[in-house]
Write a protein that binds this DNA or RNA. Structure first.
Lengths: 332, 332
DNA sequence: TTGAAAGCGCTAACAG
DNA sequence: CTGTTAGCGCTTTCAA
């Protein structure tokens, strides 16, 4: 039933060692024999057993990646890129979804030598320490993407959110706006804090004051609610920088429902460049996070950590990019 | 450095066999000895090596699940449920994302005995056959969720989309509408075809004619475009059943941009109950697919297939449910 | 109730 | 260039 390396050896008239060699592309196999082995493998429809290889080699060829949700186009883009790049290096990606550390779902993946390395993607800020602790103790190489707690002992990749907040705000200022509000994300996210800091700095550099600042979750209903409140109070800002595309979409939704035109009456900038941002009309002006660069750096750094246990820990920043679409216009 | 079952045996003064027994909850271990072993494990921070266990037992304890995107709240809900249920049975879920079979990304997961079973979630219709073929040949138990090709030899779970399409349309009819259009999904999806069939049947039963039927991808821009075309042609239907929430949202977006009120001027029903459907105003009336029931059935059926190689293949249907929200109103 | 011994399928020295 | 010999860490007979 099960065909093993042994069957291939017998069938090809060579030893298991030779078979193993062709399996691993060892150069020291006579072409003729290699062909024989390959032929036997094909005829037997042989596929090596992953567990046996892992056990013998002490590595699994699998990289684990943690995810908090399967409902985010930015994650989708990052993971897609990582997948491809890892494959180029002979590694496979296994994803594990779980809202939080307490769920305990992905711990077993790290605790039984199932993976050669781990990528921690946008963890809940409060959980970061626990993951770092577990992985460090287990001596599993890992990197973090978009983490909130600075930690020089951990290799991480973060977007320059200060710069992003600055540029987004600057774009509005350049359009002639002077009354610019900000809807910030949760305070425990470094990204929220940095985007807000960028917003404030840009205003300061232009000699302006914040028009208003609200803070809440990265969700459509929050942006909607804030906007409805502003409208009800009769002080809807003519320009808004939202910390996140979902918040921005909530803002647009509220405006459209109230008959307020975008960008004629209100200009709005989001952050992340979710696909929703460009599917919706008016299409949202936003700061794009470069998923491809993030993925590329992530894979490189993780592989470096795997291949050299004491590779230097670094924190790399990647620059976001302003994507101007239809939701912003000059002040009237 | 690495602590193995051997170290635990030595430390506890018992044999590896006994340690293995407590690891597997064998009842035949004197409580006293069990405690000693447990104690030793704790002190050594021992965790069994997954590869070794898999090799010795011939099974991995991992269930693979294929995904085409990480950007869908329905998938998110289904996977979340599956995750939990599988954990209850001692299995862990490993996800693999790939847009299509050709990507080849998840095949290695199936080809090297890395998983004990597989769940194929909403595959591209054209790829179904290839996956079935691969898995069948490798003799790996699997089930399909939301597949498009009927295949009595394969265990699958599908939503009763005919019923869904019927009820959605009936809802509009009950509201007094007589001019009801349908925006269908891609023809190669069984779900699209069935929803449309349900739509036509409901109209027929009410003695009505289809007002219009358009067909295209399950995407916001498509719904938007169709609607804009209708508006331009001066024949926007007063009631629309969209095959999917994204299409429906595109319709709403177009209407709002054109100053057409929903549900006053146009009633619209979607399908899937994506979270977006209830985050947007007006909140969308839609057909909910019961993620929890789908997940529960999926896990049960897969485990049955794993535990009994010739368990009967079945196709189970689950019923969708009409969720009435704000996007539909009585005909004026 | 416990343990000795024999694998699970593959790779890694080490010879030849 | 090829094969022999040991394991990798755990589970599984089979005896005791």
């Amino acid at each position: 039933m099960k065909v093993s390396i042994f069957d291939v050896a017998r069938k090809s008239g060579l030893s298991v060692v030779t078979v193993s060699r062709v399996l691993n592309n060892s150069s020291s196999v006579r072409q003729k024999n290699r062909d024989k082995v390959l032929q036997a493998m094909k005829e037997l429809d042989y596929h090596p057993n992953a567990a046996a290889r892992s056990l013998a080699r002490g590595k699994t060829g699998i990289i684990g990646l943690t995810l908090t949700t399967l409902h985010d186009s930015f994650f989708d883009a990052v993971v897609h890129e990582i997948n491809g790049r890892l494959a180029d290096h002979g590694y496979y990606l296994a994803l594990s979804v779980s809202k939080s550390y307490a769920d305990t779902i992905h711990r077993p993946l790290f605790e039984e030598d199932r993976v050669d390395g781990v990528i921690l993607l946008s963890l809940p800020p409060a959980d970061e320490g626990k993951f770092i602790n577990d992985l460090t103790k287990k001596n599993i190489p890992f990197i973090m993407i978009d983490n909130s707690n600075r930690n020089p002992a951990v290799t991480s990749i973060i977007v320059d959110n200060f710069r992003g907040g600055y540029e987004a705000t600057k774009h509005l200022i350049d359009l002639g706006h002077t009354e610019i509000a900000h809807i910030a994300g949760p305070a425990d996210y470094l990204s929220s804090r940095e985007r807000e800091r960028g917003y404030r700095k840009a205003l300061e550099d232009a000699g302006l004051q914040p028009y208003a600042v609200e803070r809440g979750p990265f969700e459509i209903p929050f942006g909607y609610q804030v906007t409805m409140n502003w409208i009800a109070a009769g002080k809807l800002p003519p320009a808004i920088f939202a910390a996140d595309d979902y918040i921005a979409i909530g803002v647009m939704d509220a405006c459209m429902n109230e008959g307020i035109r975008i960008p004629r009456d209100v200009s709005i900038v989001g952050f992340d460049d979710q696909v929703l941002a460009s599917e919706f009309r008016p299409m949202l002006t936003t700061m794009r996070q470069p998923a491809d660069r993030i993925a590329a750096m992530g894979v490189d750094l993780l592989l470096a950590a795997i291949n050299d246990a004491d590779a230097r820990r670094v924190t790399v920043q990647v620059e976001p990019e302003l994507i101007v679409r239809e939701s912003t216009a000059a002040r009237r």
